[in-house]
Amino acid sequence: MEVTQDLSFVHLVSNASVLVQLVLGLLLLVSLMSWWYIFLKMFAIRNEIRLTEEFEDAFWHNQNLNELYKYANSSSLRNQGALERIFAAGFVEFVKLKKQHGVEANAVMDGTRRAMRATYQREMDRLESHLAFLASVGSVSPYVGLFGTVWGIMNAFRGLANVGQATLAHVAPGIAEALVATAMGLFAAIPAVVAYNRYAHEINRLSTRFDSFTEEFSNVLQRQP
C-alpha cells in the first residue's frame, strides 16, 4: 500500500490540485513582494532616522540659518532627509515673505507653517508608502492560504469517498499538501504583520519628531528680526 509514500515538499506541491497550486503561486509572489518591501522600508526608515538625527544635531549646534540652508541644500538628493526638506521649504518661504514689504508678521509665520506642513505631509506620504501593502498582505494572505487548504482537504475527502476501507493514510497526503498552502500563507503574513507594526511605530515616532521640529523652527523664525 503506502509503504514508501514520498512526502517531500516538491512531491506535495507537484501533486496538489491546480487551484491549490495557483494559490501557492500567488502567495509566493505576494510573499516575495512583501519581503522586498520589508527590506526596502527597513533601509529607508533606518536611513531616515540617521539623516534626521544628523540634521537635528546640525540645527541645534548651528545658529546661522543661512549656513544651515546651504548645508541642507548642498547634500545630494540621496542624503537629503525629510527634516532637511521641511526646513528648506519653511526657510525659503520665510525669506520670500520677508522680502515682500507690507506683509504682517503673523501672515509670514502662517505662510511659512503652511509650506512646512505641505512638505511634511509629502514626506510622510513617502515614508508610509508600501506600508498599506504590508498591512493587507498580513491580514489577507492567511485567508488565501486557508482557502487553498480547504480546497485541498475537500479534494482529499472527495477522493476518500471512493475508497471502501478508509484509513488515515488515504487522507494524510492530501491534507499535507493542502496544509502547505496554509504554511505559505502564514509565512507571507507573519513577517508582513510584524514589519507593518514595527514600521508604523517608527514612522509615528519620526512624524512626532518632524512635528516638534516644525514648532521649534517656527519659534526660531519668529524670533528673527
Binding site: Y37, I38, F39, L40, M42, F43, A44, L77, R78
Partner: peptide
C-alpha cells in the same frame, strides 16, 4: 530616491 532597491530584492 528609493535607496537600496537591489539589495532589498
Amino acid at each position: 530616491y528609493e535607496p537600496n532597491k537591489l539589495p532589498a530584492g
